[in-house]
Design a protein around this nucleic acid. Sequence first.
DNA 1: TAAAATCGGACTAATATAGTCGTATTTTAA
DNA 2: TTAAAATACGACTATATTAGTCCGATTTTA
Lengths: 132, 132
Amino acid sequence: MVKFSKKLEYALISLRHISNAGNEVIRVRDISEKYNIPHDLLAKILQKLKNSKILISSQGINGGYTLNRKLNEIPLSELMMIVENTTTIAECFHNDDKTCTIIDSCTIKDPLSKIQTEFENILKNKMISDFV
Amino acid sequence: MVKFSKKLEYALISLRHISNAGNEVIRVRDISEKYNIPHDLLAKILQKLKNSKILISSQGINGGYTLNRKLNEIPLSELMMIVENTTTIAECFHNDDKTCTIIDSCTIKDPLSKIQTEFENILKNKMISDFV
DNA sequence: TAAAATCGGACTAATATAGTCGTATTTTAA
DNA sequence: TTAAAATACGACTATATTAGTCCGATTTTA
């Protein structure tokens, strides 16, 4: 069955928590303990969110994370890319003005790719705020 | 990344092929060879489709499969359940007439379940014919 | 009756996900 | 100034899922 990953769930839980905390700086440990998420695993997920500018981090003894972008402006697809290290599938140029140069190797032709493409389009229109 | 399985793809390819063949009986070997799909694996997938009444099989030397239902009447979600041995997620009774009896343990509360539920609703409205 | 098809359980291999470990760096309060 | 506590990050291990294989049984018909 198609499943969404734990990493995605941990990211969503964290973003909700940090978002609800307003300007307060949130430590990895705070989230890890409250929601029973492995600390090291969560730490890496939040690092990725920081590297992609969704969170802001501060190191040191009073360090932690705060939000850098509004959750209703971040598509779910973007979050999935970030936490799961995947790149977007190739854009399809097989459009009306006949600019497609990759017809021979076009992956959209097979059924699974059609599903995958349609699915990813759906995810682009779902914002994180819709789920937390 | 969320991915759809090879089994689902093999099922879709097979259904398209059998559908296009009209009344002709199609052998596992025909599909297996034409699309380079492992024979034994494909055989089991088609067996499942037969057990769930999407295909009709005949055994023996001239045996094979034919279609039993129209592809535009089979939701993608149903096909996924069949080929991947999964059961549907629990129906949510948390509806207007307040008949929900599982609020305390309701899994829809966490973000991932919200996504999963929405996603499965989408799949119910996509028919196999939309993808093959 | 032999060939060729489906039937189906048990098994193995490959891949992806989840989680752990160790060490470095940064910051700040005592 | 130094110890504590936080993030930073690569490498590693464990677990779960998916993909594929193997082998024998049953069914049908030329």
